[in-house]
Structures are given as structure tokens and as C-alpha cells.
Design a protein around this nucleic acid. Structure first.
Length: 411
DNA sequence: TTCCGGGAGC
DNA sequence: GCTCCCGGAA
């Protein structure tokens, strides 16, 4: 661990008091999960909010947090809930593996409370909970238990790389170590919860990614990036490479009542554990060269599909088991899903960008007769696939649907 | 329209 | 070191 920092020892020593004074005066003190103004902090709400805030901004989290607290006021309520209900509450927030970890974590916590009578009280105890890593564990220790804890999340990293002009790539482990060491050096042992709150507020409201409000900043006088006018050069991060594009059909398979077939996705991978229309992989194009994706024209799309079907490797890689069953079943029975709109204009795919690729989803519709509906259902259930036949409205109301599915239903 | 940030799990 | 999703900023 480095013992030397680019800032002087007087700068290091006065960092916390300056930040805490600023926080008392200008920080946010009314967020529903904050515990710094009570002597009996509730670790459950801090844990829940921190997991939500791992990926999402405060304003987006607020309504989700309220709904979770209403439905699951205690960790025992969350632990006892059915997964589908948890998924429904999380739907739209993204990163669904975290919802699964949250649910699993609730069960772990409920068991620990049964055994010990209380939440975990140590950093290691919290890190053992699914979905809780070093920074979230530090946040819970400091803010949820009013014990000593250090956070080093994205906000902290932005503030610190600027203040100390740390120009290493923050995705590298060496830089991560440096930042954690600095965060530890700066965190006051007796007030780490308030300090954590203050750092997050600084990063969110003052030391923002673009246009930081340096004039209002309590750290401006010795901020090394500010001294060089290079605030927005930090944090340093390696350039990302261009994303590939993937084309799929979103199959709206209806029965004679107009109900649509929904599949629960496998726990691993995209939209894990959530419900989706059956997707039919069409093709995948490499990043840069493909550039602008061509519109999914009906003729060429059928052609692509034929090519893909004959290519086993791609086929296996891009279909879930359920989708493979459906794909083969439709093929075998000569059922063709048609574009939902006849006019070319409305048939453009829905674009949905994920971390590592752009996804172009073309809705296609087909209605099955009663015999076909039963046969397809039976085939899926034989493979232990969870399915539902539900109208669009019912699906939106009762299933956890990812945003992309909502977009398609709104079409 | 595109780009970007974000923490944990594997 | 790669995978997860979405919303807000550019």
C-alpha cells in the first residue's frame, strides 16, 4: 500500500473537515434512506438503497425505493417474497443480476438475524452477502451501522482523481489500490458515515463529470486538477471499443384469444429471471465496420435466418433453450411470423443498447390455432421452461418486463 | 442520435 | 477482464 500521496499532509488533514462543513451547509439531508440524523440507523434501508444506487442515479431510484419499502418493509419481508414479485418491483431498473443477488442477500441476512439476533456487524460479514462488494459493504458499515467504513465508488474516484491529479487508468488494479488507500487516509475514523454521505453528495452535485462547480467547492484551493484547469481530464479511463450490433426478431405469438406467449429468461445472461417475448436471433455484425445498422428488411431477414439456422455454432450461442424449441417448432410446422406492420415505415426495428452490443429488435406476429397453442406449450413445459399466455396489458401489469419489451408493446 | 457512467460476480 | 441495463448528458 502506498504511504505517500501527491497532496501535502496539511491538505490531507483538512480535507475531511472542509468537506463536512460544506456538507452540513449544502448537502442533501432529506433522502429517504439517509441515516445520519438518527442514533438508531436502519441497516436494511441503507443496504437496499446502496444496492439500487450501485447502478442508478438518485432521482431514478427514489420511486423504486419507495415501492420496495412499501411492499417489503423489512428484510424478512423481502426474504419471504416470491422472486416474481421482487422482479416485478425491480423491472426497469436494469442489471437484473443485482435483483437476484438482492433477493438472495435478503435470505442470507434473514438467516443471520435468526442466528445472531442482528445484522452483520463487520465489513467481512457484509461482504459475504450476495451483491455486496467492498464499497457497498463500507457504505453499510459507515451509514447503516454508524461504525467505521470507507467507500470508494465512482463519485469518490472522480473527486479524488481530480483533487490529487491521479492520472492512472481507473480500470487498472494499481490505480484502484491507490484510490482506496487515499480514501482510507482521508476518511475520519469517528465520522465515516457522514463523510461517506458528503463524498457522494460532492460527486453527485458539485464535482460532476462535466461542468464541475469548482467555484462552490470546499476543495478548490488545493485541487491539483483545478490548478491546471484540467478537471474534466479526470478520471482517466481507457477508450472503449465500438459495440457490435445484433439483430433479432421479437415474436408476438398469439393464441386465438389474442393472448401472447411470454417466456421467463434463464437466470444467467441478459434479463436474467425476467420475462420476455421469444426472441429469434437473425445476425450479429462486428463493431466499427458495420457502422450504421441496415434496417431489417423482410426479405433479407428471412434469408439471414436461413443462413444462421445452418450455422450451428452461432445458433447455439445466440438462442436460449426455449427460443431454440420455438424456433424449431415454428420451422417444422411451417409457421411464419410476419412483420406487425405492412408499411415499411413502421417496420423499423426497436433499438436497445446494452453494455456490449446494440440490439435491434423487430416485432413479428403470428397467431396459432388451439391445437398449435397446446402443442407449443407442451413442448416448452416438457423442457421445464416457465411460460405465460397473457395479453400485453396483463403482462405489463403482472410480469417483470425489461424496458425493451415495454418499448415493443408500446409500438 | 450517440456516448457514457456505474459495482459486483464470475 | 468481461458481462450486466438504463437514463441523462453531450
Amino acid at each position: 500500500m502506498p504511504t505517500h500521496f501527491s497532496q501535502s499532509s496539511s491538505s490531507l488533514t483538512t480535507f475531511a473537515p472542509r468537506l463536512l462543513d460544506w456538507f452540513a451547509e449544502n448537502g442533501r439531508h432529506d433522502l429517504p434512506w439517509q441515516q445520519h440524523q438518527t442514533d438508531t440507523p436502519n441497516p436494511y434501508v441503507v443496504w437496499l438503497s446502496e444496492v439500487m444506487l450501485q447502478q442508478t442515479q438518485v432521482t431514478t431510484v427514489l420511486p423504486y425505493f419507495a415501492r420496495f419499502m412499501e411492499s417489503f418493509p423489512s428484510v424478512q419481508d423481502l426474504a419471504a417474497a416470491e422472486w416474481d414479485l421482487v422482479a416485478e418491483h425491480w423491472a426497469g431498473l436494469g442489471y437484473y443480476a443485482r435483483a437476484r443477488n438482492l433477493h438472495k442477500g435478503a435470505k442470507q441476512l434473514a438467516e443471520i438475524i435468526d442466528e445472531t439476533g442482528d445484522f452483520p456487524q463487520t465489513l467481512a460479514g457484509w461482504e459475504a452477502i450476495s451483491g455486496v462488494g467492498p464499497s457497498t459493504a463500507g457504505a453499510i458499515m459507515a451509514m447503516g451501522l454508524h461504525k467505521y467504513g470507507v467507500i470508494c465508488d465512482g463519485n469518490v474516484k472522480r473527486v479524488l482523481t481530480r483533487w490529487a491529479a491521479i492520472d492512472g487508468d481507473i480500470t487498472k488494479s494499481a490505480t484502484t489500490k491507490t484510490l482506496w488507500a487515499l480514501a482510507e487516509r482521508l476518511t475520519p475514523v469517528d465520522d465515516s458515515g457522514r463523510f461517506a454521505q458528503a463524498m457522494m453528495d460532492m460527486g453527485a452535485t458539485l464535482c460532476t463529470r462535466s461542468k464541475p462547480a469548482c467555484l462552490l467547492c470546499p476543495l478548490q484551493e488545493d485541487c491539483l486538477a483545478h490548478a491546471q484547469g484540467r478537471e474534466t481530464d479526470y478520471p482517466v479511463k481507457a477508450k472503449k471499443q465500438p459495440k457490435p450490433s445484433k439483430f433479432s426478431n421479437a415474436l408476438i405469438i398469439k393464441d386465438t384469444d389474442g393472448k401472447i406467449l411470454w417466456l421467463q429468461r434463464p437466470d444467467n445472461g441478459i434479463w436474467g429471471g425476467l420475462w420476455s417475448l421469444p426472441l429469434q436471433f437473425v445476425e450479429k455484425i462486428a463493431g466499427k465496420a458495420s457502422g450504421k445498422p441496415a434496417p431489417n428488411k423482410p426479405n433479407t431477414s428471412a434469408e439471414r435466418l436461413r443462413q444462421v439456422t445452418s450455422n450451428e455454432k452461432v445458433f447455439d450461442a445466440e438462442f436460449t433453450t426455449a427460443e431454440q424449441i420455438i424456433h424449431e417448432w415454428l420451422d417444422k410446422h411451417n409457421v411464419i411470423a410476419a412483420p406487425i406492420n405492412q408499411t415499411l415505415l413502421d417496420d423499423a426495428p426497436i433499438k436497445h443498447s446494452l453494455t456490449h452490443f446494440h440490439w435491434y429488435l423487430t416485432p413479428r406476429s403470428v397467431t396459432l390455432d388451439n391445437k398449435q397453442t397446446t402443442a407449443l406449450s407442451t413442448a416448452l413445459q416438457a423442457a421445464e421452461i416457465n411460460i405465460h399466455w397473457l395479453t400485453a396489458d396483463d403482462a405489463r401489469a403482472t410480469l417483470g418486463l425489461p424496458r425493451a419489451m415495454v418499448k415493443i408493446l408500446e409500438r
